[in-house]
Design a protein around this nucleic acid. Structure first.
Length: 819
DNA sequence: CGTGCATTAGTCGCC
DNA sequence: CTAATGCACG
């Protein structure tokens, strides 16, 4: 079996790179060999915007890298090229592959994520926007902390207006490029009004802290380009080729950013629009919940009327059997550009299906198969991945794997940069770098514990507010005894803290990042505290901090000597950072980030905050089975893939059952999952699964029934006994949930062998038609507006008057009576 | 005695 | 993960 990833591994490509470095540009035609006709078209196309619709496994990265190389070989200067990706890993990989093709001069290109690209622009143009160049970048966690503080100050009911919800809403507004003022004007209900109010305060506080959040990076760059034509023209003149990867994952702000960057017509002084090439696949758009809008790729031709579209349908990854299954499932999505993946690799093995009694049985089956595959030499552990819909489904697999001694790793969990100790340490660095960074300052105020409690913090915050000074200044005044509301004890504690920061700051001016970090850990007592603890978790924390110091050291070395970091024994996460943080991979061109060359602290923090955001997906493990969610699996491939938990309510997720748009997204997720497999695909479901401590009977996933029967070889089907128990297992406890939720519990599960629709009919309790009057246990009286679907899929949209209009599934347990 | 710290329990469930 | 409790220190 082949390797997991068909890209060169880090180590092996280095020699090729240096060889290529000396070579002049390659013969352009040479870059076209080995490409199929569509790929070739995409590489050579010129003169109008280009949309490359790249099906899963169709050689998308190859097209992008070859297109860039081809541009370079035909006279484009590397400095004229900007390529935008969604992850740092993708950016690094793309750059590396272009370097392999054309040599080192490719390093002068801007190949980066949307966010890194914006930071770069913003650092250079910060004065235009009234920012200081040492602005901090707040990630989602920092944002939420700040929003929590604001909500508390505004005395919002934390139950009605949870910080999390507020944060999401504000982020959505920013993704739509809506400013606080407009948000306030548009607010139509209580929630929206509160959101607008918090949003307004939040932006003010960000500015006070000299900070931008992740969404700001995009929004402010758009603002810059829109309001400062000279700046826009500068970039447009410079970047004549803009390429965007994973275009289906862009949100509205990113769409506008690209449009502003490229331009839609000549500027005043006659700079023509740049050449735009976007690559993506609407069928793999699975990030709507993050604000991505599939519209951008679907409407590309409308946005850019001159656009040419090229479809890549030949797949180089999977067997035809797998592709046929993927095609059959995704075909059910409405309003989609028809696209059929095909392969000349042959049919390969049939898909193996398995109906388990419960989730433990399912896990045991998966484990057994893995054991067998590895035993008979069909696959290695590395070749195998197990996917599930939500993270909590991993537990049962872990249990079985541990019991059987199968090596595995769960991808997902808490990432390196989200660990508390790492964030604490970084918060110290950030405060040293940007004293106004209030979120970081308040984070470390009493970490480790030094006797500055909530009350003292609140007093200082109030003082800052009253005197209209920064929190940092207020702290200083408190230390000097100028804040009356504080008692001596708190005052002394604060004075100690301020002194500590001053000491550290003097260390920071003369030492490199690693040393500063060391001193932080020493002088704050952070390390000592962990050392003293006998909690095994704290030992891990200590290791993580040591790892962070290593990252910092390698960063400094790489930056100083230009030497590649070795990263030999570092953890994958650390390696990923260093790889992305290596300035050697940065532009060697004249214009740099606008950072003082010696300001390694700022540079380090910036890199870390941008890398931390990436769904840093760790390189293939060492002889272990990979467990992850379907979302995480995107962009990866494995010879053997287990798709588990294919049950209505689990996958598609409960929440999506009544929502066509969400269901379409779930179906795309299924498509992504199926197309990760190269040779062997397994699909399984469990008849019974405990959820929230209660057993639930789940019917087969509708996606399962959409896979043509002839492609699947069922290893075990549902026992053909009498119609299974249909009684709801739900207590009244959850009767307050939506109707379709509780309806789930009653869905009867049937086997897959005979035509399922017939078997299901019995479970349908009620037949309704538009106009029928009904009564519902929770919603009361209602009128049926419309009905959809048949058998187990039957739903009705019912107007319950003041209780609202609700879509319900019409099965067994739904507490609905026809009048 | 007041203030702050640590430890519990109930809340939960979202990629 | 937050509120509510007991415990310790100035």
């Amino acid at each position: 079996m082949s390797t997991l990833f068909d890209l060169p591994q880090h180590g092996s490509s280095r020699s090729e790179r240096s060889e290529a470095a000396g070579r002049p540009g390659p013969d352009p035609e040479h870059l076209l060999t080995g490409l199929n006709p569509q790929q070739r078209d995409a590489v050579v196309h010129t003169g109008s915007p280009l949309l490359v619709v790249a099906g899963a496994g169709s050689g998308k990265t190859r097209v992008l890298t070859h297109r860039i190389a081809y541009l370079l070989a035909n006279g484009a200067h590397p400095g004229q090229i900007m390529a935008i990706t969604f992850t740092n890993k993708a950016a690094a990989e793309m750059k590396e592959r272009v370097v392999e093709l054309v040599g080192r001069r490719a390093n002068a290109m801007w190949v980066s994520t949307f966010h890194s690209m914006c930071v770069r622009v913003l650092r250079r143009e910060c004065k235009t926007l009234g920012l200081s160049s040492s602005f901090s970048i707040y990630d989602a966690d920092d944002s939420r902390r700040l929003i929590t503080m604001i909500a508390r100050e505004l005395e919002l009911d934390s139950k009605r207006y949870p910080a999390r919800t507020l944060a999401v809403q504000i982020s959505n507004l920013k993704n739509e490029l809506v400013d606080p003022e407009t948000a306030a004007e548009r607010a139509g209900n209580d929630m929206e009004r509160k959101v607008a109010q918090v949003y307004e305060a939040y932006q003010r506080r960000l500015a006070d802290s000299n900070a931008l959040d992740f969404d700001d990076l995009i929004m402010r760059t758009v603002e810059l380009l829109q309001h400062h034509p000279a700046v826009a023209e500068h970039y447009r003149r410079r970047f004549r080729h803009v390429l965007v990867d994973e275009y289906q994952d862009t949100n509205h702000a990113q769409y506008v950013l690209v449009r502003e960057l490229v331009g839609t017509g000549p500027t005043d002084s006659g700079v023509e629009p740049a050449e735009l090439c976007v690559v993506g696949d609407a069928d793999q758009s699975i990030y709507a919940f993050r604000g991505a809008t599939i519209r951008n790729i679907e409407e590309f031709e409308r946005d850019y009327p001159q656009a040419r579209t090229i479809l890549l349908e030949q797949n180089y990854r999977s067997t035809q059997t797998i592709l046929s299954a993927a095609n059959a499932v995704i075909r059910r999505n409405p309003n989609r550009r028809d696209k059929r993946l095909w392969s000349d690799a042959g049919d390969g093995e049939a898909i193996v299906g398995y109906v388990a009694d419960n989730e433990h049985d399912e896990a045991a089956f998966v484990a057994g198969e893995i054991d067998r595959l590895v035993d008979d030499g069909t696959a290695t552990f590395n070749d195998i991945a197990v996917f599930y819909r939500t993270n909590n489904q991993s537990r049962v697999f872990e249990e079985v794997f541990i019991r059987l001694g199968l090596p595995y790793r769960v991808v997902g969990g808490v990432r390196f940069y989200e660990r508390r100790e790492v964030r604490d340490a970084l918060a110290y660095l950030r405060v040293l770098d940007n004293p106004d960074d209030t979120v970081s300052l308040r984070r470390i105020l009493n970490v480790p514990k030094r006797g500055i409690g909530d009350r003292a913090e609140a007093v200082v915050a109030a003082h800052a507010d009253q005197e209209r000074i920064s929190f940092a200044s207020a702290l200083r005044q408190a230390a000097a005894g100028k804040v009356d509301a504080l008692n001596t004890r708190a005052r002394r504690a604060i004075a100690g803290f301020v002194d500590l920061l001053d000491e550290l700051r003097s260390v920071a001016v003369e030492s490199d990042v690693a040393e500063v970090l060391e001193q932080v850990l020493e002088r704050t007592g952070y390390r000592a505290e962990l050392d003293a603890s006998d909690d095994p978790q704290d030992a891990t924390r200590l290791e993580n901090l040591t790892e962070l110091v290593t990252v910092a050291r390698e960063f400094t070395e790489a930056r100083g000597g230009g030497a590649e970091p070795t990263g030999g024994e570092a953890e994958p996460s650390a390696e990923a950072v260093v790889a992305a943080a290596t300035p050697a991979a940065e532009d060697a061109e004249e214009e740099t980030l606008g950072l003082p060359a010696d300001d390694s602290l700022s540079a380090f923090l910036e890199r870390v905050s941008l890398v931390a955001d990436a769904d840093s997906l760790p390189e293939s493990g060492d002889g272990v089975v990979t467990l992850m969610t379907l979302h995480t699996a995107k962009g990866l491939e494995f010879p053997v893939v287990f798709l588990t938990g294919w049950e209505d309510g689990v996958f598609p997720h409960m929440r999506a059952l009544g929502e066509p748009a969400e269901q379409a997204e779930e179906r795309r997720l299924a498509y992504v999952g199926i197309t990760r497999a190269r040779q062997q695909l397994y699909v399984s479901r469990a008849l019974m699964r405990s959820a929230w401590g209660q057993p639930m009977t789940n019917p087969a996933s509708r996606f399962l029934t959409e896979i043509p029967e002839e492609l699947v070889q069922w290893r075990r089907v549902e026992p053909e006994r009498a119609a299974p128990q249909v009684r709801s297992t739900w207590g009244g406890r959850r009767a307050d949930r939506t109707g379709s939720d509780s309806a789930q519990a009653g869905l009867a599960a049937h086997g897959m062998r005979s035509t399922p629709a017939k078997g299901w009919k019995d479970a349908v309790a009620i037949k309704l038609a538009a106009g029928d009057r009904v009564t519902h246990d929770k919603y009361g009286l209602g009128t049926v507006l419309s009905t959809e679907g048949e058998g187990p899929r039957a739903t009705a949209t019912i107007d319950f008057g003041s209780a609202g209009t609700v879509k319900l599934m019409l099965i067994g347990s739904v507490p609905l009576t026809k009048l």
